[in-house]
Simulated assay, not measured.
Amino acid sequence: MPRYDFRCRECGSTFEVSRPMADANDPARCPCGHDDTVKLLNTVAVGGRSGAEPAPAGGGCCGGACGCGG
C-alpha cells in the first residue's frame, strides 16, 4: 500500500499515512489531533543499470541512441 507524507500546519510535525491510491488526496489528521495538514510532495530517485554494458553517450531523451541528436 502506498505511503504518503503529511505535515501539520499547526504543530509542524511530519507524519506518514498508508492508504490506497484511491484515497491519496483525502485529508489526514495529525497524530496530535490537528486537522490542518498538507500532503508533501515526495520524489523518488531510481537508478542503476543491470549488466556490464555502459550507458549510451550523448544527450537528449534517449541518451543519443535514437540518432535524433537532441
Rank of each mutant, 00 (worst) to 15 (best):
P54E: 06
P56S: 04
G67D: 08
A52G: 14
G60W: 00
P56R: 02
V46Q: 11
C32H: 10
C8N: 00
G59H: 06
L40V: 01
V44K: 10
G58M: 06
G48S: 02
M1A: 13
S18V: 14
G67N: 07
A65K: 12
G12D: 02
G51V: 01
V17Q: 06
A57S: 14
G51F: 03
A24G: 02
M1Y: 10
T14H: 06
G67H: 04
G58P: 05
L40R: 11
R7L: 04
D23N: 11
N42C: 13
R19D: 08
S50R: 10
C66G: 09
A22S: 15
S18E: 15
R7C: 01
F6I: 01
S50D: 09
A57D: 13
G69M: 00
D5L: 15
N42A: 15
K39I: 09
F6D: 00
T14P: 01
N25S: 10
R49G: 03
E10A: 13
P54R: 04
L41Q: 11
P54W: 04
A65H: 11
E53H: 10
D36I: 02
L40A: 06
H34N: 10
A45E: 14
D36P: 01
C11P: 03
R9I: 06
V17P: 02
P27A: 04
V17E: 09
T43L: 15
A24T: 07
P27I: 07
T14I: 08
G33C: 07
H34G: 02
T43G: 07
T43I: 14
E53P: 01
P20F: 12
C32P: 04
C62S: 04
L40P: 06
R7D: 07
G59C: 09
C11S: 02
P54G: 07
R19H: 06
G48C: 08
P54S: 06
